[in-house]
Amino acid sequence: MKKDFIKGMTHGIPIMLGYLSVSFGFGITAVSKGISALWASLISLTNITSAGQAAGVDIIAAGGTLLEMVLVQITINMRYSLMALSLSQRLDKKFTTPHRLAASYGITDEIFAVCAAQPEPLTPAYMYGMIFVAALGWVSGTAIGAMAGQLLPTAVTNAMGLLLYGMFIAIVVPPAKKERGVLAVSLIAVVISLLFKYLFTAVSVGFATVICAIAASLLGAWLFPVKDEGGAEE
């Protein structure tokens, strides 16, 4: 058990280092929108979701409703449920229901990718070690960024706040170069977002995010259907 925990921590160190820089940007962004360093850190501790947290902070700053928050989080974070279902097929027999519920807290894109690449069944200790290190980096980076945002000049904090959005761009650009569908969906999302920003200004930030994500996804699925191995479109 101890060996698996240490192995998980070792595999989680690269994730932690990446999270430190990205969550630093989230901390600065949260403080710039009127959220204290303590609450920003608590948000990171209880969520560990970059896109969900960024959208959530925007809704809070805009005075959005709980319904908006729920719909936005479901839309953005639905993928974690799919990741959890995928990993459930690779769990060790030691993974009882309580362990599954506990490990679900830390399933992120990066942790999923590392776990999915492991050749042997996943043990609770291994996942706990990785989640502990990754969460430590995410929360620590948020706290440091939030405190820095309270001390640094506005020009510097505005520049550093772009770190979080830089991560989103870094995620989208590589697959967009290879797949026309990814590029098209990204551009459609940008266009719809601009329409809500400058034309349909009466729509709140939360609902605009939900509509933008769903509309772009549906149009992408319609225009660029995925083909199965036999060549038929799905």
Rank of each mutant, 00 (worst) to 15 (best):
C115M: 07
Y105Q: 05
A103P: 01
L91K: 09
T97R: 10
C115Q: 05
A84C: 08
A125H: 04
M78A: 13
Y126I: 02
I111K: 00
H99T: 00
P98H: 10
L87I: 10
M78P: 04
L85S: 10
E110Y: 01
L85R: 07
T108F: 06
T97Q: 03
V114T: 07
P121W: 09
P98Y: 06
L87M: 14
H99I: 00
D92V: 05
Y105K: 04
M83L: 13
P121Y: 12
L122P: 01
A117F: 02
A102Q: 08
T108L: 06
T108M: 06
S88V: 06
A84M: 12
D109H: 11
I107G: 00
N77T: 08
K93Q: 14
L101Y: 12
A84S: 15
P119K: 15
A117N: 14
A103I: 07
R90D: 01
Y80P: 02
K93H: 11
D109L: 09
R90N: 09
L87C: 07
A116E: 05
A84P: 02
I76E: 05
A117I: 03
S81T: 13
C115T: 05
A113V: 08
F95I: 14
T108H: 00
Q89S: 14
K93F: 09
A84F: 04
C115G: 04
N77Q: 07
S88M: 14
K94N: 12
F95G: 08
A102N: 07
Q118F: 03
C115Y: 05
S104P: 00
L85I: 14
L122V: 04
I76M: 09
Q89V: 04
S104F: 12
A84Y: 03
I111W: 00
P119V: 00
R79A: 06
T97A: 06
D92N: 13
S104I: 03
I76W: 05
E120K: 08
P121S: 14
G106T: 03
R100F: 12
M78E: 06
L85W: 06
L122Y: 01
P119L: 04
P98E: 08
T96Y: 09
G106S: 07
A102P: 00
K94L: 06
A102F: 14
D109F: 03
D92W: 04
F95V: 12
K94S: 09
S81R: 07
F112M: 05
S104Q: 02
N77A: 11
P124N: 12
P119S: 09
I107V: 15
F112S: 04
A125F: 06
Q89R: 15
S86G: 12
R100E: 05
R90A: 04
L101Q: 06
I111A: 09
G106C: 08
T97K: 14
S86D: 14
Y80D: 01
H99D: 00
L101R: 09
T96R: 15
K93T: 08
L101W: 09
L91S: 10
L87H: 01
A116T: 03
S81W: 10
Y80V: 12
M78S: 14
Y105S: 02
T108A: 13
C115N: 13
D109P: 01
Y80A: 07
V114K: 03
F95K: 08
L85A: 15
